[in-house]
């Protein structure tokens, strides 16, 4: 009996601590969003003079007018962003899982060097290779083409690394072996047995990939020159103007509208992360 009592008081302490921590973190994590939403209702002057405020103002529709009044079409930007981000997310997640599967499930001679290569690529400082990249894209004439932003996402070393790390404990070789015995082809084994077992990992990386791609500004801005091809973040950045003519209210509104779809995607995908529990049972 004493043991049980001790246990439950420990549980209460654990819970109180847990809730306190969660609430505190929730406040600081939501803070930037609150500021963003409040600022989307304030005028540029109000924001310039007090950048951070918790009191909403009355300029929401004014800011919306500014946003819609520009020479661009936010709806078009939304669809462009959606196409690029969804395609590159799918490419990243599917092909990275496939690459990781190659490294984990098969025994081939260059396996180790290949994995080391992936790790090396992962460690290359990103700042410098970008200049070579867009020179290259210009040369092969893929400017103004979504493919220039989608195709490179097939080779995502970080995601491959994650998938490999996740796969090592989570993918039992015995199951693959028995599928082979049942006569399944390798491609089918990958698509129908390995992929479903990787669902939680894939959902996790899908969120990250989507967010990264959705928020990307630097490369899209340089590669997509055509107005019709602009993504949502490019449009928001155009509100920036130069320092003395910036529409801050509209920018915050634009940022807010940009974030909304990501939140929806996150809600949808986070369910799959949780679904991992049920799948775990299969392994036995």
């Amino acid at each position: 009996m004493a043991v049980v009592a001790g246990k439950s008081s420990g549980n209460v302490a654990f819970k109180i601590f847990g809730y306190a921590l969660c609430i505190f973190l929730a406040i600081i994590s939501l803070f930037p969003f609150v500021i963003m939403i409040v600022n989307s209702t304030r005028s540029t002057t109000q924001i310039q003079q007090h950048a951070v405020s918790l009191i909403p103002s009355t300029y929401f529709f004014k800011n919306l007018d500014v946003l819609l009044d520009k020479s661009f079409d936010p709806l078009k930007g939304f669809f462009n962003s959606l196409i690029i981000s969804s395609c590159s997310t799918i490419c990243t997640v599917y092909f990275s899982t496939m690459t990781a599967y190659a490294v984990v499930a098969y025994d081939w001679k260059l396996r180790k060097p290949f994995f080391t290569l992936i790790m090396c690529v992962l460690m290359i400082p990103a700042q410098v290779s970008s200049i070579g990249f867009y020179q290259f894209v210009y040369k092969i004439g893929l400017t103004n083409n979504f493919l220039a932003l989608i195709l490179p996402s097939i080779a995502a070393p970080t995601v491959v690394f994650f998938m490999r790390q996740y796969m090592i404990p989570a993918l039992p070789m015995e199951i693959l072996q028995s599928a082979r015995i049942d006569g399944a082809g390798e491609i089918r084994i990958f698509n129908q047995i390995a992929l479903p077992m990787m669902k939680p990992a894939m959902a996790t990386q899908a969120i990250f990939a989507f967010v990264t791609s959705w928020n990307a500004l630097f490369l899209p801005q340089i590669l997509l020159i055509d107005n019709d091809k602009h993504t949502l973040p490019i449009m928001v950045s155009q509100l920036n103007g130069d320092i003395y003519r910036t529409e801050f209210g509209a920018i915050y509104l634009g940022l807010f509208l940009t974030v909304l779809p990501v939140l929806v995607i996150y809600f949808l995908l986070s369910k799959h992360i949780i679904a991992g529990v049920a799948l775990g049972g299969v392994k036995g």
């Binding site: 092909f95 990275s96 496939m98 690459t99 599967y101 190659a102 490294v103 499930a105 098969y106 025994d107 081939w108 260059l110 396996r111 290949f114 992936i118 690529v121 290779s129 990249f133 290259f136 195709l151 490179p152 097939i154 080779a155 491959v160 390798e186 990958f190």
Partner: peptide, 17 residues
């Protein structure tokens, strides 16, 4: 199959990075 499944990564890597 190890080689086959690594082809997409390697090709993309060779071309773009």
């Amino acid at each position: 199959w190890g080689y086959i499944f690594s082809i997409p990564f390697i090709v993309t890597f060779l071309i773009f990075s």
